[in-house]
């Protein structure tokens, strides 16, 4: 087995373990390359089926093409898609683009808070009706205790301290220093009521692995990652006001694989286009302790 086959088998194993052990399971789908690979691996693990709902937190500031792509794939693959949003903050204009918050505060409000309350079912959420292809407000909102996330260890420092199955307490807080051991494909699948577990099937994948796998499997990927004439492309996707492009002529998957293999971005972090990471030094670790994915 080559590296991609090994990574694939391990991720599939983790996904099946999550499905076996968690009654109320959900997968976060950010529309980006990592969580789209995760979605593809889910279809691998379950032989074409996606046996749990997907959740997207729509900040209201996402690059518009992302929403269009999301809805198209969801309808094509018959996905059970749930969408959550911090509508209160948006209506009150308590955001960074409105000038009311810093970037990190805005992330916390529109992503961390929205996610927490959407997962717990406290806030209203919309769900795609597979019969009509339209979103409907959910009448009864299940609280999810297992959350599958596409985080990769090489992406950013704090993520390398993650376990494959990582417990969060009631406040979604993460105790980095005192995590249970994980060995021999045995994970933390038991948890006290009121806590939830995040599951990271992509922990061992690198950015290059992701693109090589997209190439090998011909996974449909949002074209925002490609240069479409301007000599720039997105390397990491987020909200329009806080996500920058990188200079790159890569206009298809093969180009990106080649670009990464040759080490063009050797000295540039993958998330360097994400402005919130720079704002307060260890921005992302601070956000992650508070529940950011």
């Amino acid at each position: 087995m080559d590296t991609l086959e090994r990574l694939e088998a391990h991720s599939v194993h983790i996904l099946r373990e999550a499905y076996r052990e968690f009654k109320s399971l959900v997968m976060l789908w950010s529309i980006g390359k990592d969580s789209t690979v995760l979605l593809w691996l889910t279809r691998k693990a379950f032989f074409g089926h996606v046996p749990f709902p997907l959740m997207h937190i729509d900040t209201g500031f996402k690059i518009p093409e992302m929403i269009a792509y999301r809805d198209r794939i969801a309808r094509e693959w018959g996905l059970d898609l749930i969408v959550g949003q911090n509508t209160a903050a948006l209506e009150a204009k308590q955001t960074f683009p409105d000038g009311a918050l810093t970037r990190v505060e805005c992330c916390k409000a529109l992503k961390s808070e929205a996610l927490k309350h959407t997962l717990s079912g406290e806030w209203p959420r919309r769900r795609l009706n597979p019969a009509t292809g339209e979103f409907e407000w959910e009448a009864t909102r299940e609280a999810f205790s297992g959350v599958i996330v596409g985080a990769r260890a090489d992406e950013e420092g704090s993520r390398s301290k993650e376990r494959y199955f990582s417990a969060r307490d009631r406040q979604s807080e993460w105790d980095v220093g005192d995590q249970p051991p994980e060995l021999w494909k045995q994970y933390k699948t038991d948890f006290a009521p009121g806590t939830h577990v995040r599951i990271h099937p992509l922990l061992d994948w690198t950015e290059l692995n992701i693109w090589e796998y997209i190439e090998r499997e011909s996974i449909p990927i949002i074209p925002l990652y490609f240069d479409r004439g301007g000599g720039t492309r997105y390397r990491s996707l987020g909200c329009l006001p806080c996500t920058g492009c990188v200079k790159s002529p890569a206009c298809n998957v093969a180009d990106i694989v080649e670009e990464l293999r040759t080490g063009r971005f050797a000295n540039v972090a993958e998330r360097s286009g994400r402005a919130q990471d720079q704002e307060d030094g260890g921005g992302l670790e601070t956000l992650r302790r508070g529940g950011y994915m």
């Binding site: 080559d2 590296t3 090489d154 690198t206 290059l208 090589e212 293999r261 080490g263 971005f265 050797a266």
Partner: peptide, 12 residues
């Protein structure tokens, strides 16, 4: 060479 970006032909 870039330590972050191996090729998959390469062992790890």
């Amino acid at each position: 060479m870039n330590p972050m970006n191996p090729t998959t032909d390469e062992q790890q």
